[in-house]
């Protein structure tokens, strides 16, 4: 299946802010968020976008 423009995962440290339905990775610190986002970006071949200070999303373009 070829995905175009899809949110593959969301990384957050405040769980109530992310959309229901995405694969959510909850982290404790900002540093952990950066690390998880970088790993997921590499694994999923997507781009990590920053929506706000609390939420990253990995998007397939």
């Amino acid at each position: 299946m070829i995905l175009e423009k899809a949110i593959l995962a969301a990384i957050t440290d405040s769980v109530h802010k992310v959309p229901v339905g995405a694969n959510v990775f909850v982290c404790d610190t900002k540093a952990e968020m950066d690390k998880v986002a970088a790993e997921l970006e590499a694994i999923l071949d997507g781009i990590a976008h920053k929506l706000s200070n609390d939420v990253y999303i990995i998007v397939k373009h």
Binding site: A37, A38, A48, Y56, I57
Partner: peptide, 9 residues
């Protein structure tokens, strides 16, 4: 241009 999330990038 675009949104780049990770500080390292």
């Amino acid at each position: 241009i675009m949104n780049i999330g990770i500080p390292e990038r």
